[in-house]
Design a protein around this nucleic acid. Structure first.
Length: 580
RNA sequence: GCAUCUGUAGCUCAGCUGGAUAGAGCACCUGGCUUCGAACCAGGUGGUCGGGGGUUCGAAUCCCUCCAGGUGCGCCA
């Protein structure tokens, strides 16, 4: 159990002993300022208010009951009723030593293991992946990693857009640009984006083409073998492009995680039938719609969802409902996360409400829309090229990598070319991912090459750099970083601050697993790296006049920092480096 | 019109379920490399937390209202 949890248990016990109900929040937190000690209990004032007691007197009663022998040197009452705690160095040492030998760095396994279905990335396969897919892919992936590390079962779902009217257009384009022999042999498209553009142009300009396209949609959806074959080829081709991107990004999605819109085709009619039978969907102007009083506005107008078009066609609401059933019934989800653009908030709410109304979603299964904002360019408007086109993800990553490689070549010209390129990749990709992950995901975020690759402040390179310094330290010391263990002692304030920062890792991961907000981990890792930089500056390790036990202790603290940093980065899907 | 999100230092952003004197980075200024990696560190300048009310021991945080901006809103996904 972590230091904080142990102290919190003691605080709760003292609350109870002082006559407070067991569920009174202690509001134990790390102190905002050093003069307030290491931790502070803030819950006394609130409790005193409820019981109409004098907060300082209540605080005194609690302090009298507080049994923190061996953990805390003093507990003092301050201000209107804060209790400030000063931790015992020995306790910090003991806890740090434990963490050094613990691969999970203090993170406990969950009381109940959940099955978390995570919907993320979900590119539309009609087009090439662009920057709009980046946030879902990166943030979703990081949350999956954290959930798995915590010990939950994670089922990734790449809900790709592989079904819909535009595929009729694409199939027709394929037929017109490829001979039958080529089509039989299997297609290869180097420029998916251009291919889509051309087919769209033909569709708009050529009525004959457009008719063929519409016919092909119908044929495709009714299972025509030739259309299905071409469609399948196009999907495979398009998917392999996406997989190249995943590979480059270091994202864990594979083909096995793909479960696209087309997979729900068979269940669309049953979904509609069930909605109608339950009286939830009703006819309106030829279409089938669902009215939701649960989402009515202030005047009482219900929210409306169309689940089937007047022409009998289905919409993405229908597909999403089928996906809900699949995730609950087939995947046995206990928690479902959707990493989808914030602009779809209303849609997601509607789908979830319908899932509850129909009883498809049991009360004990959670559904959460993990929304994120739009990626903006440096001008504060949606991120586009100068000519107004969306930016391909492949191009964005290539540019990031090139820029990073240039910096590596400049900063560290001694490295051989191959290593420079390798490191540049890790830094460039890491910088792009971290820039995104480190912002609160629900807000729009401004993409800036300058801020991202200046490598200063709260950036991936800063964290990676901290890691390389530790590797370098161990190399110089002639010790093995990964297996190092040594007695820790705490004398200097910088050592103490570093050790305390390390204690927080497990609670931050817990917090991130709960909130699905990776920026919380980023903020923490940046703080940790900063604490290390300060320590590294103030506390020499290998200098000749350093006593052996100090050297050992500082090496141990460094090794522990390295472990924590590397674990944190890996949860974010960012590579740690030994040199850069 | 309705719904929803946002407004914090010149810029980019944190601020956890209300907690003490609102924090970082960039930029700017002052220091620190003949020995552990200076892609770094120490320090400084800089804020009516959009405006106004309210709730209370205490508000950037909760409630109301106004202002400004973004996004969404029945047959695309």
């Amino acid at each position: 159990m972590s230091l904080k949890k142990r102290i919190n248990e003691a605080a709760t016990a003292a609350f109870v002993a002082a006559g407070l109900p067991e569920d009174t929040p202690t509001r134990l937190q790390w102190s905002a300022r050093p003069e307030f000690g290491d931790m502070q209990i803030n819950g006394v004032m609130g409790a005193a208010k409820q019981l109409k007691q004098n907060p300082r007197e209540l605080a005194q009663k609690i302090v009298d009951q507080l049994d923190l022998e061996g953990l805390v040197t003093k507990a003092e009452i301050a201000g209107p009723g804060f209790i400030n705690l000063h931790l015992e160095n020995a306790a910090i040492v003991e806890e740090s030593t434990k963490l050094l030998g613990d691969a999970r760095l203090g993170l406990e396994f969950p009381e109940t293991k959940e099955c978390v279905v995570v919907d993320y990335s979900a590119p539309n396969l009609a087009k090439e992946m662009h920057v709009g897919h980046l946030r879902s892919t990166i943030i979703g992936d990081a949350v999956c990693r954290a959930l798995e590390f915590k010990g939950h079962k994670v089922v990734r779902q790449n809900h790709i857009g592989d079904w819909g009217t535009q595929f009729g257009m694409l199939i027709t384009e394929l037929q017109q640009t490829h001979s039958q022999e080529e089509l039989d042999a299997g297609i290869s498209l180097s420029d998916l984006e251009g291919f889509y553009r051309k087919s769209k142009q033909h569709f708009d300009a050529d009525p004959v083409f457009a008719d063929l396209a519409r016919t092909n949609v119908v044929k495709l959806q009714s299972g025509d073998p030739e259309c299905r074959k071409l469609w399948k080829q196009f999907i495979d081709e398009s998917l392999s492009h996406a997989e190249d991107i995943y590979q480059k990004l270091g994202v864990l999605l594979t083909k096995a995680d793909v479960h696209g819109e087309s997979a729900y085709n068979e269940d669309l009619k049953p979904v509609i039938a069930a909605l109608v039978e339950a009286g939830i969907a009703v006819e309106d102007q030829g279409a089938l719609v669902v009215y939701l009083d649960e989402l009515a506005d202030k005047e009482g107008n219900p929210s409306v969802v169309i689940v089937q078009k007047a022409d009998g066609g289905f919409l993405y609401a229908t597909t999403d409902l089928a996906a809900i059933r699949y995730r609950v019934n087939q995947l046995h989800a206990t928690r479902c996360l959707y990493f989808i653009d914030a602009r779809q908030s209303l849609h997601m709410k509607q789908i979830f409400v319908i899932g509850r109304k129909t009883g498809w979603v049991p009360a004990n299964v959670e559904f959460e829309h993990c929304a994120f904002g739009t990626m903006m360019g440096e001008d504060g408007r949606p991120f586009k090229t100068r000519s107004g086109e969306t930016i391909k993800l492949a191009d964005l990553l290539d540019e990031a990598i090139e820029r990073a490689q240039a910096v590596v070549a400049k900063k560290n010209p001694n490295l051989d070319k191959e290593t420079q390129l390798e490191i540049g990749r890790a830094i460039g990709v890491g910088a792009v991912k971290y820039a995104d992950l480190s912002k609160v995901r629900t807000n729009d975020y401004r993409f800036s090459w300058e801020a991202m690759l200046s490598f200063e402040g709260n950036t991936a390179p800063y964290l990676q750099y901290a890691g390389t310094r530790i590797h370098s330290l161990f190399e110089k010391a002639g010790e093995d970083l990964s297996s190092f263990s040594g007695a820790i002692q705490i004398d200097q304030p910088e050592e103490r601050a570093l050790a305390l920062s390390i204690q927080r890792f497990s609670e931050v991961v817990d917090q991130m697993v709960d909130s699905t907000m990776p920026h919380e981990l980023c903020t923490y890792l940046y703080d940790l790296s900063g604490k290390f930089a300060t320590f590294y500056e103030a506390c020499p390790v290998l200098k000749p006049d350093i006593e052996p036990q100090i050297r050992e202790s500082r090496l141990a603290l460094s090794a522990l920092t390295s472990k924590t940093l590397a674990s944190g980065l890996s949860l974010l899907g960012i590579q740690s480096l030994e040199r850069m």
